[in-house]
């Protein structure tokens, strides 16, 4: 539809085609277009076509892009409180993450976004981050000792791996494959989908389901765009967002299992941590929680932990 007064809604992400976050974004666009009778004209640009996470967020701020899903890590560059979600082993399982993020705490965090000229609708997911390396099978905490590990340039991530005994090294993602191939670093940690999509399995032998950080991926819209919509249109969009969120999470969890299976077929050794070892990993990062408690975000952290505990019981 090419009507003059159509509202154009460009949706973007940095996720490859075929991953659940991309499929869901298309679906969301289709629903919005259909329900608004084409009043809102949606275009979807996946796979960093119009930029990576930071560019896309900035794009929403200046309203060149109207909507996107971005992991909470990069969002904390804009809205620092999102940093709390990158605390290691914060959510023991997806259910507790959903409980917290879909409840008042999640809402509270999203309320930081309008100051950034962005509206947060709800939380989709990129899934748990997981550890791969080419040196040895990681079954115990001791196995992590001395691994040269590529991490994000983030205090929290670097501290996490220091606590676990690895040597964290920020290396540019674009140079990561070669760096692992040549042994500049021994391993990396990302959601398992990256290991599949970026062929890391060609240069990595072992993957351990550490599930150390749960990456939520909020669906956000440009605030100027949101404000230009009618109440009715806003309602349509919010409803579509919730419907697609549930579908996306389901799809992503299936995709995660498929990914591990694929990696096994490709010859990687996939390892699960025993419950005792999981416990030891959690204990090892305890100092991070202790110092985080002193930070401005300490109360928020305690609220989340309390909520998680109540879910578990």
């Amino acid at each position: 539809s090419d009507r003059e007064d159509d509202k154009k809604m460009r949706l973007a992400n940095a996720t490859p085609e075929g991953r659940s976050l991309s499929d869901a974004l298309y679906l969301f666009g289709d629903i919005v277009e259909e329900e608004t009778d084409g009043e809102i004209d949606v275009e979807v640009y996946t796979n960093s076509q119009v930029g990576g996470d930071r560019e896309v967020f900035e794009g929403m701020q200046i309203n060149t892009i109207q909507g996107a899903t971005i992991s909470t890590g990069p969002i904390s560059q804009f809205a620092p409180r999102f940093d709390v979600l990158d605390l290691p082993f914060l959510f023991p399982d997806e259910e507790s993450a959903y409980e917290v993020l879909d409840g008042p705490i999640g809402e509270d965090l999203l309320a930081d976004l309008p100051d950034q000229n962005v509206i947060g609708l709800n939380y989709w997911e990129n899934g748990y981050r997981t550890l791969s390396n080419d040196i040895r099978e990681i079954e115990t905490l001791e196995d992590v000792q001395g691994l040269d590990l590529r991490t994000l340039e983030s205090q929290m991530h670097i501290r996490l791996w220091q606590q676990l005994g690895a040597n964290p090294t920020p290396i540019n993602y674009g140079e990561l494959y070669l760096s692992m191939d040549q042994g500049t670093v021994d391993g990396q940690e990302n959601p398992v989908g990256n290991v599949v999509n970026d062929n890391f399995y060609e240069v990595q032998q072992y993957i351990t389901r550490t599930d150390h950080i749960y990456n939520a991926s909020p669906l956000m819209l440009s605030k100027p765009f949101w404000d230009s919509l009618t109440t009715e249109e806003q309602e349509i969009i919010s409803e579509a967002a919730d419907k697609v969120r549930d579908y996306q999470r389901q799809l992503n969890r299936e995709e995660t299992e498929d990914s591990y299976q694929y990696l096994e077929e490709q010859g990687m050794t996939v390892t699960e941590l025993s419950e005792e070892e999981q416990e030891r990993f959690h204990e090892a990062v305890e100092p991070i929680y202790e110092s985080y408690e002193q930070s401005e975000n300490g109360d928020l952290m305690k609220r989340i932990l309390k909520e998680v505990e109540s879910v578990d019981n």
Binding site: E58, Q61, I62, Q77, F78, P80, D115, Q116, N117, S154
Partner: peptide, 10 residues
């Protein structure tokens, strides 16, 4: 605008 929103480098 970016200055106003206060984005910082990681």
């Amino acid at each position: 605008q970016i200055f106003g929103w206060g984005q910082t480098s990681p």
